[in-house]
Simulated assay, not measured.
Amino acid sequence: MSDFATLRERMVERQIAARGLDDPALLAAFRAVPREDFLSGDYADYAYQDSPLPIESGQTISQPYIVALTIYAAGIAAGCRVLEVGAGSGYAAAVIGQIAGDVIAVERHRELVDLAQLRMRRLGYGNVRIVEGDGTLGWPEGAPFDAIVAAASGSHVPQSWIAQLKPGGRIVMPIGEAHAVQTLLKVTKHGDGSLSHEDLGGVRFVPLIGAEGFAG
C-alpha cells in the first residue's frame, strides 16, 4: 500500500514549492486534494510522480507542476469565479476549488463528466461544478469569470473566452499545433478591452476540440 499522505507532501515540496511556486494558499490546496482519488486502477500508485498520467477516454491528468503553474499564473484567489476547459479527471478543478469561490469545469467526454461529478460528490467539493459541453465556447451562463484556464491546446485564444472574461481577468492556456510542443500563454484583459500576453514556457497538451478549436 502506498503512503499517499507522505507522497503528497513530498510532491508539494519537491515538485511545486522547490520550483518557486511557494504561495501558501496554492500549496495548501495541493496538500488538501488526494490526487490518487482521481486516477483509476493501478495508476493511483503513480499519482505523485512528476509527470502526466493516462485517464479514461484516451485523455490525461496533467503533471502536478503544470497544474500549479497554471493556477499561479491565472492569479486565482479567494472569491474568484473560474472556468476550467477540459475538466478531465476533475483533479485541477478540485485543486482550484480549494482556493477560488466557484469553479465551473467543462468537459466534452460524457464518461469523464460522470466520473468527475462522482468524485466531487464523494469528496464534498460543493463549489466545483462539472458540466458537459463544448469548452471552446466557454460557459456563457456562468460568465463573467475572473480567470479561465485550459487543459487542452488551441491554435488561438477563443473569442468567446475573451468575451466572458472580466476586465482585469486572466486566461492561461496552451497555444500551438496539435500533438506538438506548445507554449503555455497567459492573456490578461485590461479595462479598455485590450489584451497583453506572457509566454510561460513549453508544454505538451491534448488538442482543444470544438467549434473554436481543432476538429474532432
Rank of each mutant, 00 (worst) to 15 (best):
S2V: 13
D3V: 13
F4W: 01
A5Y: 01
A5E: 12
T6G: 07
R8L: 04
R8Q: 03
R10Y: 11
Q15L: 06
A17R: 14
A17C: 06
A18Q: 07
G20Q: 09
P24E: 12
L26R: 00
L26I: 02
L27C: 09
A29S: 05
A29Y: 02
F30N: 01
A32V: 08
V33Y: 04
V33N: 00
P34H: 11
F38A: 00
S40P: 06
G41R: 15
D42V: 13
D42S: 15
A44L: 08
A44H: 07
D45T: 12
Y46I: 03
Y46S: 05
Y46R: 09
Y48V: 10
Y48T: 07
Q49F: 09
Q49I: 05
S51W: 13
L53G: 02
I55P: 00
S57A: 15
T60A: 15
I61T: 09
S62G: 13
S62F: 04
I66R: 03
L69P: 02
L69Y: 06
L69M: 13
T70W: 04
Y72P: 08
A74S: 07
A74H: 00
A78K: 15
G79W: 15
R81W: 14
A87S: 08
A87V: 11
S89G: 02
G90Y: 00
A92F: 01
G97H: 05
G97I: 06
A100C: 10
G101L: 06
D102A: 15
V106P: 02
V106M: 09
V106H: 05
E107G: 08
R108I: 11
E111N: 13
L112I: 14
V113S: 10
V113C: 15
V113P: 14
D114T: 12
D114Q: 13
L118P: 01
L118E: 15
R119P: 01
M120S: 07
L123V: 05
G124C: 13
Y125I: 13
V128F: 06
V128M: 03
I130F: 01
V131G: 07
G133D: 05
D134E: 11
L137H: 05
G138P: 00
G138M: 00
W139M: 02
W139F: 14
E141M: 11
G142Y: 02
G142P: 01
P144M: 07
A147K: 02
A150E: 00
A150N: 04
A151P: 02
A152N: 08
G154S: 14
V157E: 12
Q159H: 01
W161R: 03
I162Q: 02
I162M: 01
Q164W: 06
Q164V: 10
P167A: 10
G168W: 07
G169Y: 02
V172P: 03
P174V: 05
P174D: 11
G176N: 12
G176S: 10
A178Q: 09
A180S: 11
L185H: 01
T188D: 05
H190K: 05
H190T: 08
G191C: 13
D192W: 12
D192E: 15
G193H: 13
S194Q: 15
S194L: 11
L195D: 15
S196K: 09
H197Y: 14
E198L: 02
D199P: 01
L200Y: 09
L200H: 08
G202D: 14
G202Y: 11
F205V: 10
I209P: 10
I209Q: 15
G210K: 07
G213K: 01
G213N: 02
G213Y: 03
A215V: 13
G216I: 11
